[in-house]
Design a binder for these strands. Structure first.
Lengths: 118, 118
DNA sequence: TTAGTAGTTCCAATGTCGTGAACTACGGGA
DNA sequence: TCCCGTAGTTCACGACATTGGAACTACTAA
């Protein structure tokens, strides 16, 4: 098992962040982690947005989030604890994550409204 | 030649915007358009960031920017005039583009500083 | 030692991207 | 009207990324 890679704060790139958050599943995972007080395991996310996510796909998503510098992952026994690195990232790119998360939230709200309209 | 596709403002998605701006060349094109008072043609961008961009690649980049809703393109005779749709997009996702552009600018400045350091 | 849980790796199918070559579309002479 | 040059597009294909099932590792508890 290869070791977990976390980039140093100065190696985090805007392109990396945008690319990783341009996937709706990863954006949802990240939003949930950023909003959460405590760490969350991968298996917390096996079902999202009304569908099952295969374990292997989920594992890749977490790796991408980690290697883009958006989350920190630590193995604790059999499970993995994930937390958002939002404070660090916000220091490097002030306001970026906030704006993206807000836009995502707004889009989700709009989708919900459209759905209940029929 | 297929007609130019511009999504309606309500069909623009966050994922689309993030994906399209996660490419450094497209981000640079968009930043330049957004900063520009008047429309710019595609061939304005045949060389960017110290390298030549092939015409076909450039054409794809513009198509992606257009279909994500970030720019508006109009054919005028033999050339294409491109303008940013930043006001519309900012109305839909307030602050998003500003934050992304600011982060990009900061990263570019940092790269420049590192380069002149040696 | 065995069983169970959490997550990872491998691999094949599929999708996306970048690019050269050939193409379309338009305008301006001759 | 025909031809040429310019601006940009489309096509086709190789390179690379993503997905997800099967098999795997790593750890815990009984």
């Amino acid at each position: 098992m290869r070791p977990l890679v976390h980039p140093a704060i100065e190696d985090i790139t805007v392109e990396g962040i945008l690319h990783v958050l341009s996937d709706p599943v990863r954006a949802a995972i990240y939003a949930s982690l950023a909003a959460s007080e405590s760490a969350r395991t991968c298996s917390n996310f096996l079902q999202m947005q009304d569908k099952e996510i295969p374990k292997s796909t989920l594992s890749q998503h977490f790796r991408m989030l980690r290697e883009a510098g958006l989350i920190r992952s630590e193995r604790h026994g059999v499970e993995m604890r994930n937390t958002s690195r939002c404070q660090e990232v916000d220091q490097r790119f002030p306001g970026l994550l906030g704006a993206i998360m807000q836009a995502h939230a707004q889009q989700c709200a709009q989708k919900q409204a459209a759905k209940s309209d029929g």
